[in-house]
Design a binder for these strands. Structure first.
Lengths: 116, 116
DNA sequence: TTCAAATATCCATGATTCTAGAAATATGGA
DNA sequence: TCCATATTTCTAGAATCATGGATATTTGAA
């Protein structure tokens, strides 16, 4: 991942509706959700949501596939992972020891104590 | 970390000058760097840079401490780590298995094959 | 071919952000 | 006290972004 993609990805997530869209799509992996269902679930006008989906898609965070009349969107977790690796590299390359607590904290995921 | 802080943190990093500032300060941990030095290093007018530092500070990504005439800024890696945990939780809570490749990729840090 | 459903595009408006000049504030030294 | 240094705050113009109404496009069904 190069810097300009990282910036696009960060900007795409730095907006509350879009972050909610991405979260919703992640929770619907791997099936995805039609654009209309996303709009309904988040109570956002369909054209506004379409614009947000376009931003997320341009950043590579989601991907839409036509399926009949609908366009089913899915989260691209690879893109999120790539962003985190990019950010982590900045700190780790300068201070590898700082990665340890980071990894330890992330390692809480597999046990997965329910969140929220 | 709650959502509004996560949004502030993402927005703070989603701007090329600010991302460069943060990166620069990370590379100068744990000593930090005076605001003026940051402005000079990145060739940005000092008041413009001051505004960017303020955004980063409001998001908790940097912290300034007066030291004589200068104000020395330091990166707050805790904030970056908190953001990554927040983002990872979204994907991992729904799909713990997706954390494994993420952790594997991040685990490249300790060996630390030099990057850039 | 005609119609309804699903989504995207066009467009205008209001809000926010980025930028940098000018002025203000804080600090240390003479 | 006076001055130079370091930084922030004030301010305004330009650019970008978010929003949603109206319209266009694509698709499937009758």
């Amino acid at each position: 991942m190069d810097e300009s993609i990282a910036l696009d990805t960060l900007a795409a997530l730095a907006q509350s509706t879009r972050l909610a869209v991405f979260r919703l799509l992640v929770s619907h992996e791997p099936h995805g959700l039609p654009a209309g269902d996303v709009a309904a679930a988040l109570d956002v006008p369909q054209n506004t949501l379409s614009a947000h989906l376009a931003v997320l898609a341009r950043a590579g965070l989601v991907e839409g596939e036509r399926q009949g009349r609908s366009i089913v969107y899915r989260a691209r977790l690879d893109a999120l992972r790539a962003l985190m690796v990019y950010l982590a590299r900045d700190c780790c390359s300068a201070h590898p020891e700082l990665c340890q607590p980071l990894l330890a904290e992330l390692a809480c995921c597999p046990p997965a104590k329910a969140s929220r």
